[in-house]
Design a protein around this nucleic acid. Structure first.
Lengths: 231, 231
DNA sequence: CCGGCTTTGTGAACGTGTGCACGAGTGCCT
DNA sequence: AGGCACTCGTGCACACGTTCACAAAGCCGG
C-alpha cells in the first residue's frame, strides 16, 4: 500500500463530489461489494463516468485497468483526503428552532462532527439540554472553542445576530463556518464560509418553474427519460 | 416602464445569485434607500461589481449610467424573473425531526412558499399539527398536490425512504424537489432537483481544515484582510 | 503465451463563469 | 453651454469545469 501523498491541489468541484462518492462507497461496502467500476459509481452518484475517473485520479488512488476500484481502499483514500481520520468537534451558535434541531439531530456526532457546545445570548435558553449538550452563554464560546479544540462553527442565529456570531467565532479561533442565516457574512479571508440557505434554494426552484410556465405551449404529460439527480 | 421581456436564458450561476441580490435590495428598500450602485450592491453581496452588472444585465433591467439602479424597480424585475409574483405552495414529505422543524419554521409562508401539507407514512404522526398544518397520510399526497396546485415538494424523510418519497411526489405531479435526505434521487429529466446536505457541507469544510493543517509550517495568528463571504 | 475484452487514466476540445478595462451615457457644477 | 466626475454595459481574455475519445494496462480463456 503506497503511503505516498501526491498532495496535488484538488479542484473545488471535485471536493464537493467526494463526500457523495464516499457515502455511496460506504453503502457498497455494507453490501459486501469490494470492487466497483467508474461506470457503476457514476450511475449511483448521478454523474458522468469520466468525471468520476478524473475526480478519483486527483487522489492519486489508482484503480486497476480492466477491473475497477477497490472499495475499501477508495474509502480510506477519500476519508483521508477529506480529513475524516479524526473527529472535528463543532460549536453551534444559536439555540433557537434551528439550533435545537441541529443539536438534537444526532447525525452530527455519528458522522465525525460531535457537538462540542451550543451557545446562545438568551438567558432563558441557557441550561436547557439539547441532544445531550447543555446550552451555555455565548461568553463561554472562546473557552469552549479553545478547550475542545474546535475549528468549525455553525451559525444558527436569526439574521440580525449572524454577523456578530461570526465575529465571535472568528475571535475565538474558529477557521471554518457553516452559516444557516440568510445573510452574507464578512470574515477574514483566512476563514472558510459555507452557506445553507433555504430561501435561495426555493427561489432557484421557482425560477425554473416559472420558466416552465412561460413556455407552456409545450407538452403537458411529463415526458423524459429517468435519470439521476444530485445537487 | 418598459414591459418588454427579453427572455434570454439566464446562466445558472446568475440565477443562484439573484436571490441574494433580492434580499439585500429588500433590506435597502426598508432603509428607504431607493438608488444603489453596482459597486455598493457588490460589496453587500460579497461579489465582484462587474459580476453584479453582468448579472443584472440579463434581466434586461437597465440601470442609469452615472447614477446606478433604482432599488424598487430592480426588486420588481428580480421578483418577476424568479417567479415570485405569486405564491408557490410546497408539500413536505416526512414529519420527523426535520419535517417538523421546516413546517414549524414559519419563514416558508412569509417568503411566498406556504406549506400546503405535510405527509408521513407513520400512523402515529398523523393528525398532529405542525405550524398550523395537520399531518396527513402519504396516500393523500396526490390529492393535496392536485387540489392545492403544488409544484414544489420537499423530501425530509430518512435516507431509506427518500427515493420512494420522490417517486410519489413525481407521480402526484410535482416538478421540482428540494431534497434534504443524503441520497441521490433518481427522477425523470423533466423534474428539477436541488439538494441540501449537511454532511457534505461539513466534509467540504473539514477538507479545507485538513489542508490547512497539512501546511501548518505557516503563520499561526490568522492574518488576512476582511472580506465578504457568500455560498 | 497470445488475442480479445474490459476498464482505467488523461489529452484535447468545448462550454461555462469570472474579472478587467474601457467606451458610452448621464447628471452636476461652474 | 461645456467640462468633469461618475457609473453602467459589455468585449475580451483567462480560468475552471465537463465530456469525449482513445491509448495503455490488466485479466482471462483457450
Amino acid at each position: 500500500m503506497p503511503s505516498e501523498r501526491p498532495r496535488r491541489r484538488i479542484p473545488e468541484a471535485t471536493v464537493a463530489r467526494l463526500p457523495v462518492y464516499l457515502r455511496i462507497l460506504g453503502e457498497q461496502a455494507d453490501l459486501e461489494i469490494d470492487r466497483i467500476s467508474s461506470d457503476r459509481l457514476a450511475e449511483l452518484a448521478g454523474v458522468n463516468a469520466a468525471k468520476v475517473r478524473k475526480d478519483l485520479s486527483y487522489l492519486g488512488s489508482y484503480g486497476t485497468r480492466g477491473v475497477g476500484y477497490e472499495v475499501g481502499y477508495l474509502v480510506y483514500q477519500i476519508r483521508r483526503e477529506l480529513g475524516l481520520t479524526h473527529d472535528w468537534p463543532v460549536v453551534i451558535v444559536g439555540a433557537g428552532n434551528l439550533g435545537q434541531a441541529l443539536a438534537g439531530y444526532g447525525g452530527f456526532g455519528e458522522r465525525g462532527y460531535p457537538v462540542a457546545g451550543v451557545v446562545d445570548v438568551d438567558p432563558a435558553k441557557i441550561g436547557s439540554v439539547l441532544g445531550g449538550v447543555r446550552v451555555r452563554h455565548i461568553d463561554e464560546l472562546a473557552q469552549i472553542v479553545q478547550s475542545r479544540r474546535v475549528n468549525i462553527g455553525v451559525v444558527a442565529t436569526p439574521p440580525a445576530a449572524a454577523q456578530d456570531a461570526a465575529e465571535r467565532l472568528v475571535r475565538a479561533g474558529v477557521t471554518s463556518i457553516l452559516n444557516f442565516a440568510p445573510v452574507v457574512l464578512t470574515v477574514p479571508r483566512s476563514v472558510e464560509v459555507r452557506k445553507v440557505d433555504l430561501a435561495v434554494e426555493l427561489q432557484i426552484l421557482s425560477y425554473h418553474e416559472q420558466r416552465r410556465a412561460d413556455g407552456t405551449l409545450r407538452s403537458v404529460g411529463g415526458a423524459g427519460a429517468t435519470r439521476s439527480a444530485s445537487a
